[in-house]
Design a protein around this nucleic acid. Structure first.
Length: 564
RNA sequence: GCACCCGUAGCUCAAUUGGAUAGAGCACAGACCUUCUAAGUCUGCGGUUACAGGUUCGAUUCCUGUCGGGUGCGCCA
């Protein structure tokens, strides 16, 4: 990586003037007039060596060898040393991109180089909404980024298929069947089945709140689900199947594949067993008929693992889930749970219990928090029925695209997915976003479709004519071209940082910058109407841009299209 | 009450983890298609980074306080 070579050159320069440090921080200045890379090392060292920072920066700049990877080094104002990369290095890197031999540095979270990502987390019998969409977009890109920096990743999805929300839904659904004997659910399209579940849940919830008799019946239904009572088992299995089929469609649509689907129903029995054993071992405690972790002893919130009716709560099932997750795929470095911040208290307590039960997993559970999704200021609630559902949203975006550009189904779909995913990923992972429909299906400016458009445009040029067989070695790139080349060398740095910091938005803004530079170049410089080395070079540059765009978009979980 | 997250342009968000002149998109006003896809490019407009202190060469970023918002805090998931 070029950055490493710069660090090496700096180290040598520091050595020449009798300085030594391990902490050489090299960053890319936001303003390219300050060079390709910059270091504040003089500012850091000035105090310890008792020198004026700017004088020290000048001294370092002087000592840098400018015959190798570095072309120019200059001291700036308070004490930065700004560095320009040799153009030959840019040329070489361009050729490496074309040969597809560029590499991204490795980054691991442990010796196994193996990381599990647990994400998506929809509950059966409920809708898959934009909150899940943000979750799955984030999870998928993190998986791809960690693969890119040399890890084996395992994608898993823990889906809630038992619990009160399902009891509420099924209780009402059974009523609906007896109220309307003509309801022919078997032949309903999937879409309508899901809507029916949503309606039943919403009405069941309302009854639970307002009607004491209904409340008791729903609690009873919940028990029957846990005990797999024949009275409820069949309808539970069937409706659960609808949800899973519906989820599968969405996973396919957004391009996520899971290595393993876990279900809450798998972990109820084992969760109980572990919890009871943990009481015997003095880890969990009995309290008011429930089994809890006494949080005060461990600096977390006290939470219930088995309720007073003897059923495992979410926490109770989580300890069994952890046991399986850490067993099924061999030793993991980390198990990263992509979960909203509202689950923090739950997660801390559950993890504390897991670590007390199995010390071998201490420090391996990680809660990757992503920000809340709000819709125009109002909080989504499936009980109130005002949620933005994933497939509906994708279809809205698709319709808008077809209406404006007469795109084919296939292209419109790809663009819709790109628009929505990009709208989430361009934000900081923690930023709670105000979701605005018109913004998410925006096709202009800083958007997914803009990136795809840039890619398609470039590809279209490449498809028109073959590259002339002329050497580009002697070609002197102009400023527009240089800007692109200087951007291209940063790709590995960006991928590494995006993975390290769990910051896919580093990659989105990198690709956006690259696209902007290319569009500027495209605007000002004829490619096919140029000739000889110039034409050959411009075609090479164009191709390199498409290759990096495609790689970057892949890492974001956004497939490219070839025409639009 | 306590804990965590947050407050940046009219709106939605960035800012490479303490760096240089705080950047984009949308919206608004204008310019550019007999040249490779105008889903594009360019120009303009827009800021006391909630407020008050502190730390230091340097603060949107770290610390303290105030105000405002979100989330959670024992039998939901």
């Amino acid at each position: 990586m070029i950055k490493d070579q710069i660090t090496q050159a700096l180290k040598t320069a520091l050595g020449k003037i009798g300085l030594e440090t391990d902490a050489i921080a090299i960053t890319s200045p936001s303003n390219t007039t300050f060079g390709d890379y910059t270091t504040n090392i003089a500012l850091q060292l000035a105090k310890t060596v008792k020198k004026n920072p700017f004088a020290l920066a000048e001294e370092i700049a002087q000592a840098i060898d400018t015959t190798g990877v570095i072309m120019k080094a200059e001291a700036y104002k308070p004490g930065f040393v700004n560095i320009w990369v040799n153009q030959q290095v840019l040329q070489t890197y361009l050729q490496e991109i074309l040969k597809d031999t560029i590499t991204v540095p490795e980054y691991h979270l442990g010796a196994q180089k193996k990381i599990m990502f647990e994400f998506a987390h929809p509950n059966t019998h409920k809708l898959f909404h934009i909150g899940h969409l943000r979750n799955i977009s984030t999870g998928e890109t993190m998986v791809r980024l960690y693969e890119a920096v040399g890890n084996k990743t395992i994608s898993v999805n823990y889906q809630g298929d038992v619990g009160m929300h399902i009891a509420k839904c099924l209780w009402r659904l059974k009523q609906m069947f007896s109220e309307d004997a003509t309801l022919d659910i078997k032949n309903l399209p999937l879409r309508e089945k899901i809507e029916l579940l949503g309606k039943a849940y919403s009405q069941g919830s309302a009854a639970f709140e307002s009607d004491e008799k209904a409340k008791q019946e729903i609690i009873d239904t919940n028990k029957k689900i846990y005990t797999q009572d024949p009275e409820i088992k069949q309808i539970w299995e069937e409706t659960r199947g609808w949800s899973l089929e519906y989820f599968d469609e969405i996973y396919k649509l957004v391009g996520t594949k899971f290595d393993r689907l876990y279900f809450e129903s798998e972990f109820a029995d084992r969760g109980l067993e572990i919890a009871h054993q943990a009481v015997t071992d003095g880890i969990l405690e009995k309290s008011d008929g429930a089994i809890i972790l006494n949080g005060e002893k461990h600096g977390v919130h006290t939470r219930v693992f088995v309720n007073s009716q003897g059923f495992p709560t979410y926490e109770g099932k989580e300890i069994a889930l952890a046991e399986t997750e850490f067993k099924e795929f061999g030793e993991l470095d980390k198990n990263i749970h992509v979960l909203g911040g509202e689950q923090q208290s739950f997660f801390k307590t559950a993890v504390k219990a897991q670590e007390l039960i199995d010390p071998s997993i201490v420090g391996k559970q990680y809660h990757l928090i992503y920000g809340w999704v709000d819709v125009k200021g109002q909080k989504m609630s499936s009980r109130k029925g005002n949620i933005v559902e994933a497939e509906w949203l994708i279809n809205e975006a698709k319709k808008a695209i077809i209406a404006e550009y007469e795109s084919s189904e296939e292209v419109a779909q790809a663009l819709a997915i790109a628009a929505i995913k990009y709208a989430f990923l361009k934000n900081g992972i923690l930023t709670s976003v105000m979701f605005d429909l018109s913004d998410a299906i925006n096709l202009h400016g800083d958007s997914g479709p803009y990136l795809l458009y840039t890619y398609v445009r470039a590809k279209s040029v490449l498809a028109k004519e073959a590259k002339p067989e002329v050497s580009t070695a002697e070609y002197k790139p102009n400023d527009d071209e240089l800007q692109i080349m200087r951007k291209l060398i940063k790709f590995p740095d960006i991928v590494l940082e995006a993975a390290k910091q769990f910051a896919p938005n580093y990659l989105t803004s990198y690709l956006y910058d690259l696209a902007q530079l290319f569009n500027l170049f495209y605007q000002n410089n004829p490619i096919l109407k140029s000739s000889d080395a110039e034409k050959a070079f411009r075609l090479e540059l164009t191709q390199a841009v498409t290759m990096i765009m495609k790689k970057g978009l892949y890492l974001l979980g956004i497939p490219t299209v070839e025409k639009m």
